[in-house]
Design a protein around this nucleic acid. Sequence first.
DNA 1: CTGTTAGCGCCTTCAA
DNA 2: TTGAAGGCGCTAACAG
Lengths: 331, 331
Amino acid sequence: MSEPSGGKSVTLHDVAREAGVSLITASRALSNPGLVSAKTIARVQQAVETTGYIPNLLAGGLKSRRSLTVAALVPNIAVAQFIPTVKALTDALDAAGYQLILGQTGYDHAREEALLGTMISRRPDGIVVTGLVHAQASRDRLRRSGIPVVETWDLSDRPVDMAVGFSHLKVGSAVAGYFLGKGWRRFGIATGDDHRAAVRREGFLSTLGHEVPTVRVPSPSSLGLGRQALRDLLALDPGIEAVFCSSDQLAQGVMEEARARGLRVPQDLAICGFGDADFAADMAPALTTVQIDGAGIGRLAADLVLARCRGEAVSAPVVDVGFRVVERGST
Amino acid sequence: MSEPSGGKSVTLHDVAREAGVSLITASRALSNPGLVSAKTIARVQQAVETTGYIPNLLAGGLKSRRSLTVAALVPNIAVAQFIPTVKALTDALDAAGYQLILGQTGYDHAREEALLGTMISRRPDGIVVTGLVHAQASRDRLRRSGIPVVETWDLSDRPVDMAVGFSHLKVGSAVAGYFLGKGWRRFGIATGDDHRAAVRREGFLSTLGHEVPTVRVPSPSSLGLGRQALRDLLALDPGIEAVFCSSDQLAQGVMEEARARGLRVPQDLAICGFGDADFAADMAPALTTVQIDGAGIGRLAADLVLARCRGEAVSAPVVDVGFRVVERGST
DNA sequence: CTGTTAGCGCCTTCAA
DNA sequence: TTGAAGGCGCTAACAG
């Protein structure tokens, strides 16, 4: 308990000396015990205890070229949407001995490019990005780095490397189709200002065949922004029958504002969100929304990266996890 | 654009050769340009361009003993409470060239201890943990590692190293005092099953002087769990006048359930949350809650770690960021 | 301002 | 089963 705390930190060299074996034998006893006799292993482990040795993964990684880290880039960790993905990714990686290095791009290409450089300089064994990498320079750099890359929450014909996501265009189409099937004809859109939400809107409009009153709010969206969005939408068209929101947080705000104005949901105003957040099913009325398996995306991304790390061939580098319009009381 | 992608990766050695300077001069041109002539810097930068060099921070860190990483341990990234802290921490560190390595302890001491070992083996320049480190073995190990440590979201007389937080006991007391001041006498508590929420409950009870019907729900708490909690609380005591919730998510659920039962808030049931989530002020009625500056905690933690990294003496290693009971419509 | 010399702590390759 | 040598890519420390 009173180890030499002030001096230099304990290295494998100290452990080897304490155990009376060579450096490399100590190394093998810890990281490749199959090659070492049981007695020696015991001695080395004893030496680890008495010296308080903690291995230095940086040093090991320099030679072995495995850092046991994976970089994850999200636009903004405060966007609730991506939390289940980050959590599942972290959990799956941790179970395999890998840790996650987190970076935020702020929905900005220049920032993303700079951050990718920083991340590559840490030599992660994999890079998981939210959304597709659009800047060509970044795509080239990633490819040249040789690091396995998974683009998530979107799909592409030509991913940088691998992809796990779904079609935002189809999501928009599906919601429009669902609304039309219910007999509604006057719509509004409340949307965050990010690229993928814009694509969902495009899908919605293309199925509809015409423009729709739209209110844009900054990311991350919130209940308060949803309330404001409905106020603005009703100012644009007081006769709106149904609103498509780019997040469940916005949808919750729209519902709150509708309630405050004495509008009945769904009779006077129908609402559809996106994401199936943890609160969506328990609202009153429960929120109709587009369910995305965010945790599944994280797990799959981890699986792909880990498979590459083990040198396995990945048979399906692009995975469509799909989505589902979940009908509940708000429509 | 058609660099040697298959072969070995480009090292500083290649850059130096390309630029016609020695290895160390190339190194300095990039990381310490003040010591190198402008002409040489330009030549080296040109060589970086043509070779597509990306530095290897692991190798540099081995010698310089700075990994430019900080480890952050949270119980669970899905607990909304901590997101602003993680975000602010990430942003502040990024601005200083540091990246964050994320780990989840799952509110479990054994898991925390194992994770701390893993993190220390990555030689981060700082470790930020959520809550206090309780296991003595972990505390000892952290101290011996010599790595700057900041415990957050709580306070202690004897932190491992540094701390940024507030007193959960005082929070509970303050809410009880506030409730009593409003003239209410019959209370309920809806709480997550984590240690700090339990301490807030203790503070509440000690100011009150007697027990109170309590419903515990698993973490992370949610709107759905809040609805269930109110059902259970009213089963324990149908005459409850005010409920103290351990999170705003729970409080939102309690409010939703109250509304569903035709209880008026606050006339029939008053509600106080904890955390001042982004939706709290925009609910109808707006939610009375305990405001914590989560982003401020993250920024301060980053400041403390970075100060230590620069070798500066930290004059106030324990910072109480306090809290504020924000009165809104729900009480 | 630039270069030479030694490693950082560990792991891979070869030999015993 | 164990050991000795060498090097991963880079940077402190000292010279020039």
